[in-house]
Design a protein around this nucleic acid. Structure first.
Lengths: 120, 120
DNA sequence: CAGGATCCTTTAAGATACTG
DNA sequence: CAGTATCTTAAAGGATCCTG
């Protein structure tokens, strides 16, 4: 890790602001292996509202993480896919997923200890 | 990345909820190399309010990411340091920092393209 | 020095209804 | 089907004052 403290508007924070939220991670992950349609994603991402999904996808598209392709069927179909840039991000985020899975027990144990110590 | 979509309460999301916010990342990063005191951290993390810092540190402590040590001086001193668990997390988060730095240009370029296309 | 408690403002998020 | 617009509610965040 870096010796220098992270500044308030570093690339890291800019990326975190976009990527480090539940729905963005879910969406990237869902789209990562094959293109998906809007409502298909909605169903796949459990409780997401269409507003949130719409927002999330638009942000990801703007950042060049996912690609949006309108197919002129009737009614219209829209396909979301991962970009090359998005793919590398997904790989990186996946590292965090692996860390999470490997350490979730330790975290939960720490929480339990903390809470036990707290309630006297 | 995983083929299976990330479920709504996976370890990943639990970790993201804690770790993937500006202040937590800043705090972990600030404490990563040597222990720091409360107000020392406050100064180092630019604009953080003491409420936010307090909240952030408490959460990180609860999760076993940082360690809190009260030193009985007068007035009292409190020292925050990284735990072994926190250290491995910092390493992982650092990967994301590296990705961010390497790809920030591409992201900004994508945003510029998107915005240019949007305003007609 | 290191915080807790309170109040108040701003932002995020969900529900609902409507459109090309 | 794939969204946008609007309204309302929930949560995050900041400012201020206070204490061991």
């Amino acid at each position: 890790m870096a010796d220098t403290p992270i500044e308030a508007n570093s690339p890291m924070l800019l990326v975190l602001d976009r990527v480090a939220n539940k729905w963005a991670v879910l969406a990237v992950s869902a789209v990562c292996n094959q293109p998906k349609r809007f409502n298909q994603l909605r169903r796949e991402l459990g409780g997401i509202s269409q507003k949130m999904l719409s927002q999330t996808l638009k942000r990801l598209e703007r950042d060049g993480i996912v690609d949006r392709k309108v197919i002129a069927t009737v009614p219209v179909t829209v396909e979301y896919s991962i970009t090359p840039l998005g793919k590398t991000l997904a790989l990186t985020v996946d590292q965090l997923r692996i860390w999470s899975e490997q350490n979730i027990e330790q975290i939960l144990a720490a929480q339990a200890r903390f809470d036990a110590a707290a309630e006297v």
